[in-house]
Amino acid sequence: MGCEQWREILSAQLDGEASRSEIEAAEAHLTGCAGCRGWFDSAASVVRRARTQLAPRVPDLVDAVL
């Protein structure tokens, strides 16, 4: 399996969509592949920033909807 396929599995892991066996296999791959390890660290950082970013302010539409 090439690194591109491993990175798909790693991406699924970040999204909570990878199976336990995929996670275990990907972790084993990361121990021997510095390129994928760097990619995973960068991707995890992006995901973390996206999930913790403040939501933009939006107008209160409660009265208009009701």
Rank of each mutant, 00 (worst) to 15 (best):
G2T: 03
E4N: 11
E4V: 06
E4G: 04
Q5F: 09
Q5W: 02
Q5D: 10
W6N: 03
W6C: 11
W6M: 04
W6Q: 14
W6A: 03
R7S: 02
E8S: 07
I9Q: 14
L10N: 04
L10R: 01
A12F: 04
A12C: 03
Q13V: 09
Q13S: 13
L14E: 06
D15W: 03
D15A: 15
D15E: 15
G16T: 05
E17T: 07
E17Q: 15
E17V: 02
E17S: 05
R20M: 11
R20W: 11
S21V: 10
S21F: 13
E22K: 03
E22V: 07
I23C: 12
I23Y: 06
I23H: 05
A25V: 02
A26Y: 01
A26H: 05
E27F: 03
E27A: 12
H29S: 07
H29T: 01
H29G: 12
L30S: 06
T31Y: 15
C33T: 10
C33V: 03
C36H: 08
C36Y: 11
C36A: 05
R37H: 13
R37C: 04
G38C: 08
G38N: 15
W39P: 04
W39M: 02
S42A: 13
A43E: 12
A44K: 14
A44C: 12
A44P: 14
V46A: 13
V46G: 02
R48K: 09
R48M: 04
R48T: 06
A50F: 07
A50D: 09
A50P: 00
A50V: 07
R51N: 12
Q53P: 00
Q53A: 10
A55F: 05
A55N: 05
P56Y: 03
P56H: 03
P56I: 05
P56T: 03
R57T: 08
V58D: 00
V58N: 00
D60V: 00
V62S: 15
D63N: 04
V65T: 02
